[in-house]
Design a protein around this nucleic acid. Structure first.
Length: 505
DNA sequence: AGTGCAGTTGACTTT
DNA sequence: TAAAGTCAACTGCAC
C-alpha cells in the first residue's frame, strides 16, 4: 500500500486544512502527529503548552476517527519515525503546513527535507497564514496577505479511508521525561470546539467592547478575543477568523482585524530572518545588556516590588495569558528598568504563554527592548500604566494580596507608605512584600540615556534604514532626521517659501 | 468692561 | 503599543 502522509504540526484541525484536502485527492492518507521529546525540552516550550496541545490533539483524533481514520500519534525523532512509516507502508508524498518556528523546528525541518529528498519523496508545505516564504523585501506584502485571507475556506473532508493494522498509539501525559511541572490553573482549554465557542462568543457578545477593554488587565481577560492560543496551535484557521469577523461591522471589529493582520506581519520577520530569535536586529544593540539571575528571578516570580508589574506577572503565571499592553510593559520593565538581555526574559515569557508563537514573540521581545531600531523607544512607566489601567488597584489587590489593605493612592507605590501607614495596612515592606529592586523613575531615565547614546552614534541610522527596507511596514518608518518641517501653531498651513527655506537651512 | 495673571489644556516635539 | 517636556491658547477669577 502506498500512502499520502499528512504531518500535523501546529495546525490541529481538519477544517480549512489544505494539505489534508490535497493529499486526499491523491489517495489514502496517514494522518500523523509526532510528539517530539527534544522539542518539548527546548527552553521556550513548557508543560502548559503541551497540555493545551494535547487537548487539541484529543479533539483532532476524535474528528479524524469520525471521518474513518483516527489520528496516529508517535513519540520520538521526526526523521526516524517518518522513515519507519515509509519502510512499512511506502509514502508517496509528505504533506504539511509551512511552519515558521524556532531554530530547533527549522533545523528539524531541514533534516526532514533532506531525508525526503534522499528517498525520493516530495514534501509539499502549504501556507496557513499570511506569511510569505522566500520573500526578499516587504513591499507589496499587505496586498498578498489580503488575497491569502480572501481565498475560500476549505471544508472538512467527507471521509478518510481506514488504514488496516495501524494502532493510533497513546497520547502521552508528558511529552518528554523530566520536564518541570507547570501549574497553570486558569489556562484556557485546548481543542477546536473550545476555540469555536470563543470565536462565537466574541463575535456575538464581546466584540463591541473590544477596543475599549483591551488595554486594561481588569477588562481584557473577558474583552479580548482570546483566540490567540487557538490560532497558535491551529485549532482555528486564521482565514476562517478573518472571514467570520468580516461579517460583522463596527469600530471594534476593525481594530480586531488590524491585529489579525499584525499577527502575520510579525511572523514574517522571523520567517525572513530566523536569527532574530537570538540576535538583535540592529548590530549596535548587541551585547548591550547584562545578564543577572537574581533580577531575572525576581521579575519572573512577580516580586520586583513594583506592584503593577508583579500583579501582571502573577496573573500571567496563573492564566497562561495576559493582554498585549501588559506583555509589552513586562518586557519593557525587564529590558529597560532591569537592563536584562531580552533573550533571557523572552524565554521566561515564551514558556508562560500558552499562545506562544515564535515569530510574534521574538519580534515583540526585540521591539519592546528597542533593539529593532526601526521603532521609537517605548519605555513604559509601570506606575503610570497602573494608574491609567487599574486606578483603584483592584487588579493589583487580586494578584498581590500582600497589598490588600493599602489605600488606593499608595497601592501603585507602596514604598511611599510611612511606617505608621504600613502598620495600619498590616504590611511590613521588605518583609511581606519587597521594596522595589530598582527605583523605577531613575532606572528608566538611565536606560533611556543609554539607548539614545547608541541611537545617536554615527552609522546607526544607515543600518536602521536597511532594517526598515527589509522588515518595516510603511507606517513604522523612521522620520528622516533633520528633514521634517516644523509647523508652528500660529501658522498652521504655512507654505511660505521664505519660512520653508529658513526651516531647512 | 477690560486687563492681568495663575493655572489648565492640548497639540506637538524630543528623548 | 510611551513618556516627558515645551509652548501657546484658553479659562476663571480678582480688581
Amino acid at each position: 500500500m502506498v500512502l499520502q502522509l499528512v504531518w500535523f504540526k501546529r495546525d490541529l484541525r481538519v477544517q480549512d486544512h489544505q494539505p489534508l484536502q490535497q493529499a486526499l485527492l491523491r489517495g489514502p492518507v496517514l494522518p500523523l502527529y509526532i510528539v517530539e521529546p527534544d522539542l518539548w525540552r527546548q527552553p521556550d516550550f513548557s508543560g502548559r503548552q503541551w497540555a493545551f496541545c494535547r487537548e487539541s490533539l484529543e479533539h483532532l483524533r476524535e474528528q479524524l476517527a469520525r471521518l474513518g481514520q483516527p489520528l496516529v500519534v508517535r513519540s520520538g525523532d521526526a526523521v526516524a519515525l517518518l522513515d519507519q512509516a515509509h519502510r512499512r507502508f511506502g509514502i508517496e508524498r509528505l504533506w504539511s503546513h509551512e511552519e515558521t518556528g524556532n531554530d530547533w523546528t527549522y533545523s528539524r525541518d531541514r533534516r526532514v527535507a533532506n531525508w525526503a529528498k534522499t528517498h525520493g519523496i516530495r514534501w509539499t508545505q502549504l501556507p496557513q497564514f499570511g506569511v510569505i516564504r522566500g520573500l526578499r523585501q516587504r513591499k507589496g506584502w499587505a496586498q498578498r496577505w489580503e488575497s491569502r485571507m480572501a481565498e475560500p475556506l476549505i471544508s472538512a473532508p467527507d471521509g478518510l479511508p481506514a488504514i488496516t493494522g495501524l494502532s493510533p498509539g497513546p497520547l502521552p501525559i508528558a511529552p518528554a521525561k523530566g520536564l518541570a511541572s507547570d501549574w497553570c490553573p486558569n489556562r484556557q482549554v485546548g481543542g477546536r470546539s473550545e476555540g469555536l465557542q470563543e470565536l462565537e462568543s466574541f463575535l456575538t457578545e464581546r466584540a463591541p467592547a473590544y477596543a475599549s477593554s483591551l488595554s486594561s488587565p481588569v477588562t481584557a481577560f473577558r474583552g479580548c478575543s482570546r483566540l490567540s492560543a487557538y490560532l497558535s496551535w491551529g485549532c482555528l484557521s486564521l482565514r476562517e477568523v478573518v472571514q467570520s469577523s468580516r461579517h460583522e461591522q463596527g469600530r471594534s471589529i476593525r481594530s480586531f482585524e488590524n491585529r489579525l493582520h499584525w499577527h502575520c506581519h510579525f511572523i514574517q520577520k522571523l520567517e525572513a530572518q530566523p536569527a532574530i530569535e537570538f540576535e538583535d536586529f540592529h548590530p549596535f544593540m548587541r551585547g548591550l545588556r547584562c545578564a543577572d539571575d537574581e533580577r531575572l528571578a525576581a521579575w519572573a516570580e512577580g516580586r520586583t516590588g513594583v506592584p503593577f508589574v508583579d500583579a501582571c506577572m502573577r496573573a500571567l503565571q496563573s492564566h497562561g495569558w495576559i493582554n498585549f499592553r501588559m506583555r509589552a510593559m513586562l518586557m519593557s520593565f525587564a529590558s529597560y528598568h532591569l537592563w536584562l538581555p531580552w533573550r533571557d526574559s523572552g524565554l521566561h515569557l515564551a514558556r508562560q504563554f500558552v499562545d506562544y508563537e515564535p515569530g510574534i514573540h521574538w519580534s515583540q521581545c526585540q521591539m519592546q527592548s528597542g533593539s529593532t531600531a526601526i521603532n521609537t523607544v517605548r519605555i513604559y512607566n509601570p506606575i503610570k500604566q497602573g494608574q491609567d489601567h487599574d486606578l483603584n488597584g483592584e487588579f493589583i489587590r487580586t494578584w498581590v494580596p500582600e497589598l490588600h489593605l493599602v489605600p488606593d493612592v499608595y497601592v501603585h507605590e507602596p514604598w511611599k507608605l510611612s511606617m505608621a501607614a504600613q502598620r495600619k495596612a498590616d504590611l511590613r515592606l521588605g518583609f511581606d512584600y519587597p521594596l522595589p529592586i530598582v527605583e523605577p523613575v531613575v532606572a528608566a531615565k538611565e536606560a533611556k540615556q543609554r539607548i539614545w547614546a547608541i541611537r545617536e552614534r554615527s552609522g546607526f541610522s544607515a543600518i536602521a534604514n536597511e532594517i526598515q527596507q527589509r522588515h518595516g511596514s510603511r507606517r513604522s518608518g523612521l522620520p528622516s532626521t533633520g528633514q521634517r518641517r516644523r509647523r508652528s501653531r500660529r501658522d498652521p498651513v504655512s507654505s511660505d517659501s521664505l519660512q520653508l527655506t529658513l526651516n531647512l537651512s
